[in-house]
Design a protein around this nucleic acid. Sequence first.
DNA 1: GTGGTCTAGACCACA
DNA 2: GTGGTCTAGACCACC
Lengths: 134, 134, 134, 134
Amino acid sequence: MGNEPLLRFRLDRHSGLPVYRQLVDQVRQALRLGILHPGDQLPSVRDVVEQVAINPNTVHRAYRELEHQGLVEGQAGRGTFVRRSLPGLTKQHDALQRRLTAWLASAHAAGLDDEAIEAMVARAKESAEREERS
Amino acid sequence: MGNEPLLRFRLDRHSGLPVYRQLVDQVRQALRLGILHPGDQLPSVRDVVEQVAINPNTVHRAYRELEHQGLVEGQAGRGTFVRRSLPGLTKQHDALQRRLTAWLASAHAAGLDDEAIEAMVARAKESAEREERS
Amino acid sequence: MGNEPLLRFRLDRHSGLPVYRQLVDQVRQALRLGILHPGDQLPSVRDVVEQVAINPNTVHRAYRELEHQGLVEGQAGRGTFVRRSLPGLTKQHDALQRRLTAWLASAHAAGLDDEAIEAMVARAKESAEREERS
Amino acid sequence: MGNEPLLRFRLDRHSGLPVYRQLVDQVRQALRLGILHPGDQLPSVRDVVEQVAINPNTVHRAYRELEHQGLVEGQAGRGTFVRRSLPGLTKQHDALQRRLTAWLASAHAAGLDDEAIEAMVARAKESAEREERS
DNA sequence: GTGGTCTAGACCACA
DNA sequence: GTGGTCTAGACCACC
C-alpha cells in the first residue's frame, strides 16, 4: 500500500534560508495548520532525500532541531514522530484565511509580483509595530 | 545639517537569512516603496555599522551586490547612490496596502502570533499557485 | 603569545559514548568546576580538531548542542563563548572532593581496577535510590 | 516455580550508551558483585524484552557479546548460563563499599545532583592519574 | 527497514 | 582567521 506521506517538503533554493531551516519551518507550519498531530510519523529521512534531492544529513539536522524544540521524537529503527502540536489555526480563523487569500488574488490581479507583495507585508508589519508602541 | 538617513536598517538575527542579504532586501524594498529614488544616497557604511553593529565588510558586500544588480552606484570618496528604481507601489496600490494593514490588525486581534501569520501567508500563496496551475 | 586554551579535551575511544557527547560533557563539567566562566572562549573548532584528531563537524555538533542548552554562543567569525555557568562546586565541597579522592586511592591500593570501581559506584547509587524511595 | 530472576536490567535512555552495551555492562557488573555465579541462568530474552521494552534482537546481541567474552554460554532451547566469573568484590571490599555509600549520602545531603557527582568522580580519577604518572 | 554517528572535504558568511 | 551549511558516503544501533 502506497502510504501517502502527510507532509511534502518544498524547497526554495533562492530564498537564502538554509535548507534545514526550511524543513524545520515547514514542519512547524504543518503543526500549526493541523496537518500533523501528536503521534503522526514524519516522512523518513530517506523519503525526504528522494523527494527533494538533498543529503540525508541535512534532513537529519532538521529533525534533530525539531527534537530539540520538543516537537518531535526520533526513535531509532522506527521513525520520527510528532510529540506535541503548536497553538494552531482553528476554524475560527478560516474567515481570516479567506480574507487574506482574497487579498492576495487582488494583489496579483493588480500586477504585483512576489517581491512587491513581500514589501507590502513588511510595510504592514511595520505599521502594526508602530501602532503597538503608541 | 543633521542629514537624517532616508533608510534605517533592521536586522533579525534569528531569521536565518544572511545579514548581507537582509540589507540588500531592505534596500530593494525601499526602492519599491518609494522611500528611495534615483540620486538618493544610501547610508554610509560607517552609519550602518553604527546602527546595527556589524562589520563594515558585510555592508560593503551588500552594497556591492546592489551595484551588481545595477540599482546603485558607489562613487569613491562620496558615497553610494541610487541609480534606478524598481517597479513600485503607486497610489493605485494604497488601497491594497490599507486592506492588508487592516487584515493584519484583525489577525493580531484574534491572538495570532508572528509564526501563525507566516503560516497563513504561506497557505494563501499555495492556494494562489494552485489556482494558477488550474 | 601562545594563548593557552582554558580547556583541553580528552577522548576515550572505548567508552561507547559518542565523541560529540564526550565533548559536551567535558564542557559542562568545566563549567561546574569553575574552569570556564561566562565570557570565556571555547577552543576554536580547528584547535579541537588538532588536539584530538576528530572531524570538524563532530566538534561543531558538540558546540551546537551546548548552544541549544543555552550554555554557549557561537559568533561567526569570532569564536564560541560561554554564556552562562552551571550550579558549581564551591569551596564548601572541597572536603567532599578530598574524601572521594582519598577513597579512590584506597580502592586502587586494594587492587580494584576501573570496572570494579565503576561497579562499586553503581551499587552505591542504587543503595542511595533505595534509601530515597523508602 | 516462580523463578525470580537474579538480575534486573535497567536502561538509561539518555546516557548515550547503546542499549546492548548497557546490558553487557550490567551483566559484567553483576558478576563482579557476586550477584551472578558460574552456572546461573541469565534472564531469558523474553523476560528482558518484557522488563525493558526493547527488541529481542538487541538482547541477543548483548548475550552474544558476553558469549564472545567467554563469560556466558547460550544453550539452544535451554537458556543462557554463566560460565565464569570476574575478579570480584569480596568481603574484604565491604568496607570500601560502605565508605563510598556513606560518601554518596553526604554528597546528596550537600545538595549535589547526579551530574555534579559525576564531575567529582571524574576529577578524582584525574587526580589519581596525575599521582600515578609522578 | 528506521534513525544516529562519524569522516572527508567544499564553500559561504562574518570579523 | 572564526563559525555555519551542505554533500557524499561509511558504518552502527535498533526494530
